[in-house]
Structure formats: structure tokens, C-alpha cells
């Protein structure tokens, strides 16, 4: 599967999980603990922001020509507002 340059949500989420576990395991210098803590908080905030700002994008693919065009207009978005 091709990977984009920016870490995916999944990659960041896994990194956060590992960071939490490392910090919980202990046996760290205070400096390492602090930098793990800061890194973890940063990841969590960034993931939260991604979720909060997320809006489902819908793209339409024409199988015949394989030419994709992006739909900015949402399908039936009104249904969900209620």
C-alpha cells in the first residue's frame, strides 16, 4: 500500500500508544520522561484536532475511464444535520 509523507492517523495513533506505554514502564531519566510526555501530549492534541475537524469527503470514480473527480458537494448532507 503506498504511504503518504505525513504520518497517517493510524501511524500517529500507534506512536501515541507506544509513547504512553514507554512512559508508564518507567526506568527513564527525567529528561527522557519529559520529552516522551511532551511528544505524547502533542500527538494526542494533533489527533484530536484531526478528528474534530474531519469532514467526510466523497469522491466519484468512473470505472470505465478511471478518471476520478472530486465532489465537494456532499451527498444528502442535510440528513445528518438533524
Amino acid at each position: 500500500m503506498p504511504k503518504s509523507k505525513a504520518p497517517s492517523f493510524e501511524e500517529s495513533y500507534k506512536e501515541l500508544d507506544e509513547t504512553v506505554q514507554k512512559l508508564e514502564a518507567g526506568e527513564l531519566t527525567l529528561e527522557d520522561a519529559i520529552s516522551l510526555f511532551e511528544h505524547g501530549m502533542q500527538l494526542a492534541a494533533q489527533l484530536e484536532k484531526q478528528l474534530e475537524q474531519a469532514e467526510l469527503r466523497v469522491r466519484r470514480l468512473k470505472p470505465a475511464a478511471l478518471d476520478a473527480e472530486t465532489f465537494e458537494q456532499d451527498f444528502g448532507a442535510q440528513d445528518d444535520e438533524a
Binding site: 501515541l16 504512553v20 512512559l23 508508564e24 518507567g26 527525567l30 520522561a33 510526555f37 501530549m41 494526542a44
Partner: peptide, 12 residues
Amino acid sequence: MQSRLWLAMDSR
């Protein structure tokens, strides 16, 4: 996970 980070940092 944020709570856990705080707790872990606190105990460190």
C-alpha cells in the same frame, strides 16, 4: 491516553 500520560509523568 492523555490522562495516562499525565499519571505516568506524575509518578516519574
